[in-house]
Design a protein around this nucleic acid. Sequence first.
DNA 1: TAGTGGTCTAGACCACACC
DNA 2: GTGTGGTCTAGACCACTAG
Lengths: 237, 237
Amino acid sequence: MNKYEIIANEMRNRIKNNVYPIDQPIPDEVSLAKEFNSSRMTMKRALDNLVAEGLLFRKRGHGTFIIQSAIQDDHVHVVSNEILGLTNLLKDKKIQSKVIQFEVQFPTEEVAAHLSIDQKTPVYYVVRLRIVEGEPYVLEKTYMPTHLIPGINDDVLHDSIYNHITNVLQLKIAGTHRKIRACKSDHIDQQHLGCKQDDPILEVEHVGFLDTGIPFEYSFSRHRHDKFVVTSVNIRR
Amino acid sequence: MNKYEIIANEMRNRIKNNVYPIDQPIPDEVSLAKEFNSSRMTMKRALDNLVAEGLLFRKRGHGTFIIQSAIQDDHVHVVSNEILGLTNLLKDKKIQSKVIQFEVQFPTEEVAAHLSIDQKTPVYYVVRLRIVEGEPYVLEKTYMPTHLIPGINDDVLHDSIYNHITNVLQLKIAGTHRKIRACKSDHIDQQHLGCKQDDPILEVEHVGFLDTGIPFEYSFSRHRHDKFVVTSVNIRR
DNA sequence: TAGTGGTCTAGACCACACC
DNA sequence: GTGTGGTCTAGACCACTAG
């Protein structure tokens, strides 16, 4: 654990436990740096993290303040935590996967473009229903270049593609680009997610890329509207 | 303009203009710092920004690489740019506002909690249809404590509440917390957004807070599903 | 082992807000 | 003016990767 993380954790606890008055600035950076026996840059970095979390706000020339509305609800960054795949995001829950479709295709122009490949490079097309604690949770449609992610089979699909990529193939996932939108549900959604005909879907379009910068996955995750919310925090700089 | 911003801009241009081979690491931080006549920390900070934008990725012990899929589409951070309100986000477009409802209420428990006030503190309740280039764009339902945001009237509502807050009241908006979800449209959505009965809605729940850390706005923005997408980029650290 | 990015330091000066 | 956060420096050491 780095020093700035240790300091950030301590400060987060203090703030949540009301050690600092909510309507006053917290102590200035120089004093805090002295208290934590760190340089001011390191102290600042710790506070930067809490600012990014939406817990603190800075007023240049004035001080660093607690965001009142942040203390009440414990908001979670779904967006930024979900890089690791569902199996790792919901570690404590029982997750099952039902494979609905699994084939090899030549990609459409759109899929090829998002994967940075040409249309003659074959891709896996996987449709899976992810079931969390016995409840249908999300329907995932995934395209992956076969040459990048070899060895996909039923065992992998029933477990976790992400674990296969990171543990078996020893590849490293670097990040994702996402688009979030609302859609009508189609009959496949209704059949597998158990939603009604007029229930909407929260769709997350997703490009995942490896630590080489190469995209390895282009997917559409279709969520029941009543079971999935994306949260985000934005602090002005 | 700060030095790290200048450097980031230059590097962004170089990357987008293919100055650096896409499958190779870009020059190392020490060399780049020397080239830009900066310290390594400042160089790193410039690159940090490009990493946050989803343009670059770092491999510790190896180098800094270009994310291939990032160069193709010019993805925009809707989430992080929208703090300033619709009028400022879509500056070049013609925006009209139709006031559908405007009253003063005692807040429900939920609204009071999100605004950090008690249920005896009156709030404005405003429902507005925002029309962009003549097309219905979003239906906004907004709660604001009357004592924090005084002087709301029809003129303000037809222009921009955000401009009233920042220019007239001279308050400073610090940031927002958001939740994004899909909903069914109700008859009010259908009537004003011109969507069909089975069209879904992309709803953004939103708490805005001032640079004092005090929440001033709790709102629900209901978007036509075919005209609004939220994008996000996530890079693992 | 050499080279890369990650962290941390101690100090400097600047920009801004309040008195 | 005084005190705050914002930026920047020059250098150090650590952690990781590749050959």
